[in-house]
Design a protein around this nucleic acid. Structure first.
Lengths: 392, 392
DNA sequence: CACCGTTGATGTATCGATAAAGCACAGTGG
DNA sequence: CCACTGTGCTTTATCGATACATCAACGGTG
């Protein structure tokens, strides 16, 4: 591979001149420019070696996006992909590359809501966090006490967590590392959905979730079990639904949580079937924690010979594109998913750009740590979109 | 940030000893090990700086996965996510990280099938290819003459292309860079699907595609238009369907290609509606180039008051999980999608592991370029899975 | 007792680039 | 005529780690 030195020798100039031309620092003449570019072409120079430049500059231009394993789940979920699309868009604007770091979910409930400690996960994926060539990390739905976080903190990498419980605590750092948070008003959105149902006269509903933990337990869950979920988003949504029920003075026994296992038509059909054939009074409405689940539930209800919303009202969550175009357009809680990704990326990059602009060899001449302008609001709004899956 | 030097000073030993312990080279005593680990803990050493290690070793442990923009498309497509899951699995086994590099699709048809040259794309995303800290690149559905490829070639990075037309030509390099290919027998799979229909007595069918080019043109396409598609996979599938028709001596006018625009229920419904209300004889079967399209088409056909397979037979492609569990389980062409990802990753990593094992300071003592054992077969098989969306 | 292979630690050179200082030389104003 | 200010290019000193060579101490052998 040709290096700067080769180009310099060929052009008959110093390496610094070549570097100056290639980085367009402006400190060179037109003649020099020509000579260097010509020589670069001649020796087939492919541009500065990224590893060397990263070492010297102290910046890599790459951010790690940390996702929970299995990636399939993350990729297949329309809400997650829309989020990633937002992240990708902002990264592209800011000339930043994204490295995917997949983490196994920590086993056990969120430590702050449970007594059992989060178990250690396999070492191999954690080593990836140590060796990744990145300037910062963006965590998507990663538990706040995941052991992987310690590694990022040790490396003093700025970290931004999306949909993490950390935001609730108002903190702005993890250990010594800067920390940012972007969340969505999941609690409020869920509460609005449940209030809407109550306003329509519903008194008994079932909440459909895909899984509460890595190992799902199919069927109804008790409220303590449900609230011990490992997912912070899920927990906030459940609390929102529950709060509306409490507000209206309705008993929690009439708001059951059903674990379906997967975002999968067959699994949802089974769950709905079980629900509708169980003894005792049936729910008159379904609150699904995602649109995928809600759409599956609609299909299952129809297969069962019942009508949506006539026999059973359904409300989803996320407002994915398919929600609006479904056979029965879905009433759902809209959240600005793509924008969430953009905000997260923007907030993180604003921080890194301001604080580690570039390695400077003489003392700390870093810009004042001014509050970042145009930063994203920490909590994005949600709103209820009323369509045809709830009665008018 | 603490460096090796700090650890060495604290432990009162040389930097090399620290490096030896951390890299577990075995050339140190138990006492030394203790002292070093203790000192590392004490100064809060976060492990070797990845950029520095990459520079010195000449390897980064990261592979670039190049996907066409918009990423949303890639992430939302179940076939693509299954593929990425396979890639991720193999990478994890091999302790390799993946960097996502999104490329805008080159505008214009594949140059080898067209006279118009592939247009230049925006420069910004290409710069990412120059600056990415990677050892190799895995291209997913990237045109063989995409300008981005030149950059990888200049960097002499090993490249592996999946579902690219390159495999047809039997080449094993792009310029000076090693090149590998993994493809699936798309032609054969499509032909089997169409033959099956013909065997069932069908004589008129419509082929549903999402889009032939970046800017889709909704509605029927002529065969020359269809075959000028920018997607190599799509082209192979179209040729397979067509070949079955030709074999049976049926006219191509009875095999129409319909462009739906998106993998979207509403778009598909419109396309199916148009198809079924057009004057003249209607097709008796639908060949969809993906299961997502096929499942959407099934729903659209039912909405239209017709039955699958009674009134209209439907065959999909890919055999995504949802195909088996659909209301009418889908007849489709199965391809080993996850395995395709694993094979691609394995083939690429086998190459890089053998050929750039590590930077060696003295002369070329590299291992003989033995043919890689256990490498993936270059073309993976497909098979027709007959379920309920075609009559028995 | 001199010779030698082993073990464990250290020194030195380098990977490929960039930051900052240094240095010639031309043009200016007092 | 000389100090003074830019240009434009070069020299020097790193960035943080690893490959390889070297060296000291030691126990076993003929």
């Amino acid at each position: 591979m040709a290096t700067l030195k080769d180009v310099a020798r060929t052009a008959g100039v110093s390496v610094m001149s070549v570097s100056n031309v290639l980085n367009d620092t402006g400190r060179f003449s037109a003649t020099m420019r020509e000579r260097v570019l010509q020589a670069a072409e001649e020796v087939g120079y492919a541009g500065p070696d990224p590893a060397a430049a990263s070492l010297r500059r102290g910046r890599t231009g790459t951010v790690g996006v940390v996702l929970p394993l299995p990636l399939e789940t993350a990729f297949a979920d329309p809400a997650a992909t829309a989020f990633l699309e937002g992240v990708a868009r902002e990264f592209q604007r800011r000339r930043t590359t994204m490295t995917l770091l997949a983490l196994p979910p920590a086993v056990g409930p969120l430590a702050r809501y449970a007594t059992a400690p989060v178990q250690q996960v396999a070492d191999a994926p954690l080593a990836a966090l140590e060796k990744a060539v990145i300037d910062a990390a963006l965590l998507y739905s990663v538990e706040e006490d995941h052991p992987g976080l310690d590694i990022l903190v040790k490396r003093e990498l700025p970290v931004l967590a999306v949909d993490s419980p950390g935001h609730d605590t108002g903190r702005d750092r993890f250990g010594d590392a800067w920390a940012g948070f972007v969340t969505v008003d999941d609690f409020g959105g869920a509460r609005r959905a449940a209030r809407h149902l109550i306003g329509l006269g519903h008194r008994r509903a079932a909440i459909l979730v895909d899984k509460l933990a890595v190992q799902p337990r199919l069927g109804p869950a008790t409220w303590p079990q449900a609230l011990a979920t490992t997912s912070a988003i899920l927990r906030r949504r459940l609390l929102g639904y529950r709060d509306a029920w409490a507000e209206a003075g309705l008993p929690f026994t009439d708001l059951t949580v059903i674990e379906c296992g997967r975002n999968d038509i067959a699994a949802i059909r089974t769950a709905v079937h079980t629900l509708l054939t169980a003894p005792g009074p049936h729910p008159t409405a379904l609150l699904a924690v995602s649109d995928t689940l809600a759409l599956g539930a609609c299909a299952a209800v129809r297969d069962h010979g019942l009508a949506v919303p006539g026999d059973l009202a359904v409300i989803g969550y996320d407002d994915i594109p398919a929600a609006a175009t479904a056979v029965v357009p879905l009433t759902t809680v809209h959240q600005p998913t793509v924008e969430k990704g953009e905000s997260a990326a923007r907030l993180l990059l604003d921080h890194t750009d301001h604080h580690i602009e570039h390695r400077s060899d003489h003392g700390a001449s870093t810009a004042p740590p001014a509050p970042v302008a145009g930063a994203a609001p920490p909590e994005l709004p949600t709103r209820l979109v009323i369509r045809a899956s709830t009665p008018a």
